[in-house]
Design a binder for these strands. Sequence first.
DNA 1: AGCCAGGACGGAA
DNA 2: TTCCGTCATGGC
Length: 268
Amino acid sequence: MTERILEDFDLDQIARSGQCFRFRPLGERQYALVAGGRYVEIAQQGSCVRFACPEDEFETVWRLYFDLDADYGRYKGAVAKRDKYLQSAIEAGGGLRILRQELWEVIVCFIISQQNNIARITKCVENLCSLFGETCYNSSGQVYNAFPSAARLAACTPDDLTPIRLGYRAKYILSAARQVAAGEVDLAAVRQMDHTHAQAELMRLSGVGVKVAECICLFALHHIDAFPIDTHIRRMLDEHYPKGFPLRRYKGFAGVMQQYAFYYELVK
DNA sequence: AGCCAGGACGGAA
DNA sequence: TTCCGTCATGGC
């Protein structure tokens, strides 16, 4: 068990932010999370966050995963006082963090996300893991399913994926899995690329366009200058920033502002 | 019944 | 380059 007092951290906001689909609610401000091949239960009371794991696991895994060494106060402080929209967004979602999720998992999750809603995306991901993910047991006897590897999915037929209810996205995922499993797209190399090159390389994958590639860059590769524009962000930009979003002001971390805005559009 | 959901793709124009 | 029809599924 590890406890920490964390600033700019809200477990509910993070779990509902739509960047990760593997938070399972356990109770009031409590979640089970499978990430990085691990299962952990997390609970928050006020600013106190309890991780049901040893200190060393918290330090070596979850500190990085939740981006706890970054100063989100600095990001929020960069917002202009007169920018009422972003100020409201920060007020609503000031506890958000940009997670560092596993690359292949984020690729698949955001291929699924296209023309879809978060509730159904979550169901698809759960189905995918329970059907094809390796069954794992942690030290406290918890049973959980890892996210299925590219090789595992590449071995599937379209019929195998029917019960997942992926719709037309199933063929994208099978194709992308084959590209990765065959080494046609080298994910290890993508991890070493800068934002621009990573985006271009990711777009070689079946079912990955500009928006999905930006989500992958932001939520897996931690290129926090990535700025995915989906239907909500598009509508928000048209309504609140008709003469353009101040990307210059947030140079290098515009993706953090995007996430505040996206979350605000979800909950407002 | 029709519209929308964290879009991408292939083919026209 | 931009535009357009199409692609599954489920909730409202």
